[in-house]
Design a protein around this nucleic acid. Structure first.
Length: 541
RNA sequence: GCCGCUAUCGUCUAACGGUUAGGACACAGGAUUCUCAAUCCUGCAAUCGGGGUUCGAUUCCCCGUAGCGGUACCA
């Protein structure tokens, strides 16, 4: 056991360069003046891979709560793991979130820029801050240097498994916990690497109750692990950075994934050790996937649909995805949407206690449905401009077509879009190609013409088209047009009017299924329609 | 293994201790339309198992079981 004085001495030996105290640090982070009910939240991802759909989910929740309480949302980057860090990780996060309209009030805005008075917002730039608190903790005997190597740690773990006791660095297993100043100096002299560990004062046998905003009352065992605070490379662990940053930045509510729930006991102890007021937690369950009848977390490695880029590339409308995510977060969103079909998402109030307690399956089928409904609310002009934005990046051919034929394309998108019965076959902007195919010969060329000779004999088809060409008038109203078709059927003794329409449909669109044929003809125009009909007779029959 | 969280149709979920266990998506059938999509009906389909408490349990308690998470000098 070291004495008070020895701990102070140890702190000085370990951190001779650190002159500031926690009090000095707090001067740089003045308390925020908050109005009643105002919430400050942060979303704090690590730049360790492509942007996960779960990050959009968490980011959205953070921004939403801040917005609905007139509070502040912060984007902080937790870049403390140099091993796993990837190039462009930060811009992937920033751009991805921005792409979904998730905008923060404070924090990182690009690889090398931040906004706000409570920075730096990049943890790698806060190393000196963590050191100040570490030194303070060491001086109070609440932290200590640990010289255990990776190998030694492995041996300890092995021994613990043999004895079937908990693995980890705690109690008597924490070899350096009560080392003397002399022993430590000895190691230092040999330039041995060390990490700083918490000197845990908890007792694993004790439990305490606390309130989680989404889970409700929970019982937790006290922490007794001497968790690492500062790694040997000088970077903090998540556990240590979390209470410090969230306190300094004036965060009022901790929202984070459920995978952190097991660590709350540690975090509670850390808040205490640091002398900070504990912040309320809201843990929400991760997005799951159904795989072979089993539920599991959406995985970055196995599931392409876990990457945000998957949705961006396919052109999922961001509003649709956000709406679906909101649905997973608070399922009463659906009822609200029914009552407020046209109101902005911002008006929906998210509630902590409404979050689902177990993990929800991320259901693409349902997502498609939500997106389909969203697309149906758009005007043809909106579809056009959004499709153009998407195609600019992901489909050159479609982009050119859209750009060079603006009015024509808007007319195409307007088919069955006006009036009560809106056509709902557009889920994402990738599907736009499918809609344009029948209107551009260049695209249609590649398609096989469907064969309906079994349904209507070739000779009859010829006759239908010949007669139709005679009566065809682009200026006909729908009723006149359909009247003409009906008359054609009876003149030719064809019992099903649908057969006549089908012949025309296939001749014009090459398909047995198409949007409203009258509207298709109107959009194509007289010349194209005649051309296709004649061409069909000449080449296909 | 140990620790924690969770458990209602295939999926997302609703139900002051009293309901015929409700809705949405998906699926199936029908109606309608020039085809498809849409729309409108209809149908299919659930309280994990076992014990308690209670007049009465999806709801409260206990024990199993399962799923998820944690058990790192990763976050």
């Amino acid at each position: 056991m070291r004495t008070k004085e020895q701990n102070m001495q140890l702190a000085e030996i370990l951190f001779p360069d650190v002159k500031r105290t926690p009090k000095d640090i707090f001067k740089d982070f003045p308390e925020r003046k908050l109005k009643k009910g105002q919430m400050i939240l942060r979303f704090a991802p690590s730049p360790t891979g492509f942007l996960h759909i779960g990050s959009i989910y968490s980011g959205m929740i953070c921004v939403k709560f801040a917005k609905q309480t007139d509070g502040i949302s912060i984007l902080r980057i937790e870049d403390t793991d140099k091993e796993r860090e990837i190039k462009d990780g930060v811009s992937m996060i920033v751009e991805g979130l921005k792409g979904f309209g998730i905008r923060f009030n404070e924090g990182v805005v690009s690889e090398d820029r931040s906004e706000g008075d409570y920075g730096p917002y990049m943890q790698s730039k806060r190393l000196d801050i963590y050191k100040v608190f570490t030194k303070d903790l060491v001086s109070k005997g609440l932290a200590y240097p640990c010289f255990l190597t990776e190998d030694e740690l492995g041996e300890i773990r092995e021994k613990q498994s043999e004895l079937s006791v908990r693995t980890g660095c705690y109690g008597k297993w924490a070899k350096w916990r009560d080392a003397s100043v002399e022993e430590i100096e000895q190691m230092l002299k040999q330039e041995k690497k060390f990490a700083i560990r918490l000197y845990s004062e908890g007792n694993y046998e004790n439990t305490f109750e606390m309130e989680d905003l989404t889970k409700g009352k929970v019982t937790v065992r006290e922490n007794d692990m001497d968790a690492i605070l500062l790694k040997s490379d000088g970077f903090p662990t998540y556990h240590f950075a979390h209470p410090i940053d969230d306190t300094l930045m004036g965060v009022t509510h901790i929202t984070r994934g459920d995978e952190w729930f097991s660590s709350v006991a540690l975090h509670v102890e850390l808040f205490n050790a640091l002398g900070f007021k504990l912040l309320p937690y809201a843990h929400f369950s991760p997005l799951m996937k159904m795989d072979d009848g089993k539920k599991r977390k959406l995985s970055k490695r196995k599931d392409p649909e876990s990457a945000v880029s998957y949705y961006i590339e396919k052109g999922y409308p961001k509003e649709g995805l956000l709406e679906y995510l909101l649905n997973i977060a608070n399922s009463n969103f659906y009822d609200w949407r029914i009552e407020n079909p046209t109101v902005s998402l911002d008006k929906f109030e998210l509630k902590f206690e409404k979050f689902n307690k177990s993990g929800a399956i991320f259901d693409i089928v349902k997502l498609d449905d939500v997106c389909k409904e969203y697309m149906a609310t758009l005007s043809a002009e909106d579809v056009y401009s959004k499709a153009l934005d998407w195609a600019r990046e992901f489909d050159d051919e479609i982009f050119n077509l859209l750009e060079k034929n603006k009015d024509y394309c808007i007319n195409i998108f307007n088919i069955e879009r006006e009036g009560e019965k809106v056509r709902k076959d557009l889920v994402k902007f990738e599907d736009v190609r499918e809609q344009l195919v029948l209107f551009f010969d260049k695209l249609l060329e590649n398609e096989k013409v469907e064969d309906i000779s079994e349904r209507v004999e070739v000779e009859a088809q010829k006759e239908i088209i010949k007669r139709y060409l005679e009566i065809f008038n682009i200026n006909d109203s729908v009723d006149d047009w359909f009247g003409g078709i009906k008359k054609l059927a009876s003149d030719l003794n064809i019992s099903k009017v649908g057969d006549v329409a089908m012949v025309l449909r296939v001749a014009i669109t090459h398909r047995t299924r198409s949007p409203d044929l009258y509207q298709v003809i109107q959009v194509l125009g007289e010349e194209k329609v005649r051309g296709r009909l004649e061409n069909y007779v000449a080449t296909m029959l």
